[in-house]
Design a binder for these strands. Structure first.
Lengths: 193, 193
DNA sequence: TTTTTTCCATACTCGGGCGTATGGTCTTCA
DNA sequence: TGAAGACCATACGCCCGAGTATGGAAAAAA
């Protein structure tokens, strides 16, 4: 049976394990990432896993690397394309509702910021995104230092939102309430043109 | 040997276990709260623990309850005493640097927002604090709905700060850099009188 | 058609935390 | 002083996940 037709190879690849791992992380957090449960979830046994990976640790390593790469490319391609800095900033916020999996993974990673393998990834991602935001504020005319403060502030709002979302203390992303809040955030943080 | 003199009872109470549990949570997160390690840390064995508590779960329950009570009283007494709403809001931010343990515990709890025992506590605490903040903004003349949005925004900044602090991506609380950032936050979020 | 190589299943060992059972040692109080 | 209760130590059984060892089946190569 052809893989190209069924889109379902009879044999698994390392990338398949990584993808499934990211789904588990998004759904239940990094603490729930265990080899045997993951294998059960994929309808297979550990034997397969330890052929593709040397340890649980290496799976996490590679999964995170894959995710970070995806996120970095995403940042550059979708936000980098918008020339107007104000639109770019607004798009940053609006992007939270889309890109579901990516943000769910990020949210889960934030909850494990003390983890030795997670922390460096989180550091780099936050740094990249904040630099991006600071850049936009500079383009809007802020002096460098102010722009950095404002970028940190803006990113904090995003992080706080993710936290409140984990606590389900935030209106549904598609609700009118959410739109009103988002307007308020934009109004408060992004200077009028 | 009298306990009153040495301040070191020969026998432990449930409250002692709770306090030590909160320290562990603050230092290593809720996942690191385990009975045997906790006992070892206190230079004692499990036998004692299971005399005071029925399970690990109940220890967590009571520890969280104790912490929440402390936090609620703290909110009412220290912030409630400030009549000027603007000063009250500023004090809210400045309070982060003080009250070390309380905020470290809260930060650790945020990292476990999905935990069934933690979530309700987090919900109530965030709700209380945001209501407090919204109240202050109302006193500053904001209409009710705007004040709630602004309170959510303000609290998100606080939450985001805690997150960045966990990643050590924030200037030291006592540095000049931090003061500059704090000024910027206050300037941006709290309306001039 | 053999012979590798690839991929996975099964069956272990090991560590570590949870909860229980039981007994010992203090203190307290009748 | 002797009995009762408070507090803790020790020793167990259980569960569950990590990692290893080994063998089998299927595909690819020779």
């Amino acid at each position: 049976m052809s893989d190209l037709l069924t889109n379902k190879r009879s044999t698994l690849s390392a990338a398949d394990w990584e993808q499934e791992a990211l789904h588990v992380i998004a759904e239940q957090g990094i603490g729930a990432l265990a080899v045997e449960p993951l294998a059960r979830r994929m309808g297979i046994t550990k034997g397969s896993f330890y052929w593709h990976f040397s340890s649980r640790e290496s799976l996490l390593e590679q999964s995170l690397e894959s995710w970070e790469g995806h996120d970095a490319r995403n940042l550059a391609s979708s936000l980098g394309a918008i020339t107007d800095p104000r639109e770019r900033l607004i798009s940053f916020f609006r992007r939270v509702s889309r890109e579901g999996l990516t943000h769910e993974v990020y949210s889960a990673l934030c909850a494990a910021a003390d983890h030795p393998q997670v922390k460096p990834v989180l550091d780099r991602v936050a740094e990249r995104r904040m630099a991006h935001i600071a850049q936009a504020f500079e383009e809007l005319g802020m002096p460098s230092e102010t722009a950095e403060h404002h970028a940190r502030l803006t990113y904090s709002v995003y992080l706080g939102f993710l936290q409140l979302q984990r606590q389900s203390q935030v209106p549904s992303l598609s609700s009118r309430q959410f739109e009103a809040y988002l307007d308020h955030v934009i109004e408060t943080l992004i200077p009028r043109r």
